[in-house]
């Protein structure tokens, strides 16, 4: 008799990753088809979880494909509202604002808050942006709240 499991998994790609919720660091296989997540499996060989996973890690992945996701840069125009724009313009307005603050109020007037949710690569670059950009240590992350 044919094993039904390969049929269920037809066309599904598994990508080994780590759950994005709490700090336990459960290894998971993200199951995808046609650029969409269709399931999460706990990794039996995950060093932190050894095959276990909680209700959030197992099921709370709908947010990834949620229609509320931000898909374009937004800038606040003269009408006081946020409007979609290009990456180039959004980054330029962002950059100009920081340079203006530093020029008018000193380099210590710029502050960065890094995330406890992003990969370390983003945290490292956030702190480097503050330190290499302004020479200060005006950087923190969400660990105090």
């Amino acid at each position: 008799m044919q094993n039904p499991i390969p049929l269920m998994e037809a066309g599904i790609t598994k990508t080994r990753s780590v759950c994005g919720y709490c700090g336990v660091g459960c290894a998971v296989d993200v199951m995808t088809r046609d650029n969409r997540i269709v399931g999460i499996q706990p990794a039996m060989d995950g060093p932190a979880n050894e095959g276990a996973l909680c209700v959030k890690g197992q099921f709370a992945y709908d947010f990834v494909h949620h229609p509320d996701r931000l898909t374009r840069p937004l800038v606040r125009r003269d009408d006081g509202k946020l409007h979609p724009t290009t990456w180039d313009e959004a980054l330029q307005i962002a950059a100009d604002g920081f340079l203006r603050a530093a020029a008018e109020h000193g380099e210590a007037s710029v502050y960065g808050i890094a995330s406890g949710r992003t990969p370390s690569e983003a945290d490292y670059l956030m702190q480097k942006w503050v330190r290499a950009g302004f020479g200060t240590h005006n950087i923190d992350n969400c660990s105090r709240a």
């Binding site: 660091g25 840069p73 937004l74 990969p119």
Partner: peptide
């Protein structure tokens, strides 16, 4: 004043360090 749309979990490569100081790849 400016909102920049970021890729989230399952959309980036990098590393997390867990509560036992274990450095793990996310993909």
């Amino acid at each position: 004043h400016v909102v920049l749309p970021a890729a989230g979990w399952a959309e980036v490569d990098g590393h997390y360090t867990n509560t036992e100081r274990r450095i793990q790849r996310v993909r």
